[in-house]
Design a protein around this nucleic acid. Structure first.
Lengths: 355, 355
DNA sequence: TTGTATGCGTTATCAC
DNA sequence: GTGATAACGCATACAA
């Protein structure tokens, strides 16, 4: 069964050539007689040759420079987790010569993104990890990097136009479906469910639209629209009306609201409101394990959080790059991370150091 | 920031000794002058020396033999997943000289376990992975292996008596709490919830008792015992009464049953019953993504499955052994795997090839 | 008690 | 076109 794995030397001996020649055909560097090439390939296949990754990484003493183009976590705390994941991966892979340089931009300022991308483009990197939250601004850079042959991995937001090496993130539509299931399971009688977008530019964020659509489709797929009404609302604090005031109005006008689905990690805004108004009986589902969300999950105001696994996005993104650059392994170009359902009772397993 | 990581050679030069000497002090093989030892250690610390794991694994061309002592998956399909995880880990780590030999026993026959364990004991292995589902029979072997200094990792069932290298599995009590939450969220009015143990020797399976206790405690912790009654039942098919007949009687006598919590992967037994009797409105929670369970999850009879991540148990178990034997990394002695909540809507992310 | 030499499997640089 | 050979960082057998 487990023979002591064939080495280059073994196949060289069998083919009556030197290791150098074997190496050349295995790496397609040409300059080798065709009959020899065929013979070597055949024997390699017969012996089920698999390169020893250790030796390869050891000898190629190269350092791999990665640029991470990420939003500023001090502006939107959500982005801290991906950066943590990046750091964790960097620690593990530093051993293999991989190093990450971070380029931080303001998630509310498209120009800031462009400036950061310019900086990245000005240097030479072996690979890129990008959270491309500005669609239009991203395209030109992707085009350039694609032509230069610099592999880039996208996280959080998928932009397939220029075929990234990988996309790592979640399936927004599916997570909307899931949110529908969770609220419906908690209230199977007649009810109105609110879909709340909070402080978001919904029209420019296709993933929010996908979430809303998934949520709606859950009820139509299960033939529930008669009993369960879905009410999307777009909440933005303005000078005239605070979000709390808008919510007052909403709950006054909409009858029988039994649950709220918040499409982002801002679910704590609703949680705070519900707690103040002593309306904790209303079911509440949102995203991500931010400190404030966890607090309301533990006190029972939030029923479920759907984890987008932001830390894992950073972690697996860097690993995807490493697999490509260092280990020359192929990865599937799209990696949907699980939609983890988090409650107070299983929270502890998702806040730890694991990816 | 990222200096080119100090090597043994570097610290040897700084200390005016040879690499051999440095190696000796680093590996505590004695036979080195005390002043030299101090000097070397100091410099190693200053340079923040970290051994290159690649080179170490490469040079120690040793093969590591692991024995996996596991229940027969053809008898209880549940055990297929851990074996898959073991195989996956073996594939990855074969590179590093690790090989796994499987010893399969009948999960319903304690003597069969002893026979398999005898076989393991008769050979020499560098490490062991064990699913110790027979407590009493296991102890003598653990004692022996402990004295011999053979590291063993336990999965699925924790037996702390002889300090395994690691335990990998789930927190049964916590998963009972979680099941309580899920059923309660789905039915907040007055209700009776059944805790069903199916075809199990409950008295000899402490983890089932822990699950039941966790479930009960959920309701007492939330001051719900007045509205929510918990009814444990032990279902075993006998010559006189089939399980279905026992269920008939149960639902006849117990009023207002709104949910059932099955403490094992046998939840499909209840699902089949509920579907036949057209009682799908009763909430149903159980364990594990077996094919039959997944079927009832998709058809909506089962509401939630709690994933014990059996594949991950095998996978991480082997990796824990490898970390110890090959990479000489320390792992925490207990690794609780997440209690994943699975519904039809997020199922797809947990059935894939990922650990 | 200490230093030197060799090899692990792969890659890269030579010379032929 | 091809074949030796040195090097990556570490461990170890052996010489001093």
């Amino acid at each position: 069964m487990s023979k002591p794995t064939a080495r280059i030397k073994d196949i060289a001996e069998k083919a009556n050539v030197s290791t150098g020649t074997v190496d050349r055909v295995l790496h397609d560097r040409g300059r080798v007689a065709d009959d020899v090439r065929q013979r070597v390939l055949k024997i390699a296949r017969e012996l089920d040759y698999k390169p020893n990754l250790l030796a390869r990484a050891l000898v190629s003493n190269k350092t791999y420079l990665i640029a991470a183009l990420m939003p500023d976590p001090t502006v939107a705390i959500y982005w801290q987790a991906p950066l943590d994941g990046i750091s964790k991966a960097e620690e593990e892979l530093g051993q293999y010569g991989l190093h990450v340089t971070q380029f931080i931009f303001d998630p509310y300022d498209a120009e800031s993104f462009s400036r950061a991308a310019d900086k990245v483009a000005a240097s030479t990197f072996d690979g890129l990890l990008i959270a491309p939250i500005f669609y239009r601004q991203s395209l030109a850079y992707f085009n350039k990097w694609k032509r230069q042959g610099i592999p880039f991995v996208l996280i959080n937001t998928h932009i397939p136009d220029y075929e990234p090496l990988m996309y790592i993130g979640q399936d927004s539509y599916q997570s909307g479906l899931l949110a529908g299931k969770l609220l419906h399971y908690g209230c199977r009688g007649k009810a109105t469910f609110v879909v709340a977008h909070i402080e978001e530019d919904v029209q420019n964020s296709s993933h929010l639209i996908h979430k809303e659509q998934g949520f709606k489709d859950y009820f139509s797929q299960h033939n529930l629209p008669e009993t369960h009404r879905v009410l999307p609302v777009d909440l933005q604090g303005t000078a005239r009306y605070t979000i709390a005031q808008q919510l007052d109005k909403l709950f006054e006008e909409a009858a029988n609201v039994k649950g709220v689905f918040v499409t982002t990690s801002r679910v704590n805004v609703i949680a705070e409101y519900l707690q103040q108004k002593r309306m904790e009986h209303i079911s509440l589902v949102g995203y991500d394990l931010l400190g404030r969300n966890v607090h309301y999950l533990e006190t029972g105001v939030i029923d479920f959080l759907i984890n987008q696994n932001p830390k894992g996005q950073g972690y697996w993104g860097i690993h995807g790059l490493a697999d490509h650059l260092i280990f020359r392994k192929k990865n599937s170009p799209i990696k949907y991370l699980p939609l983890d359902i988090i409650t107070k009772e299983n929270l502890q397993y998702y806040t730890g150091a694991d990816s």
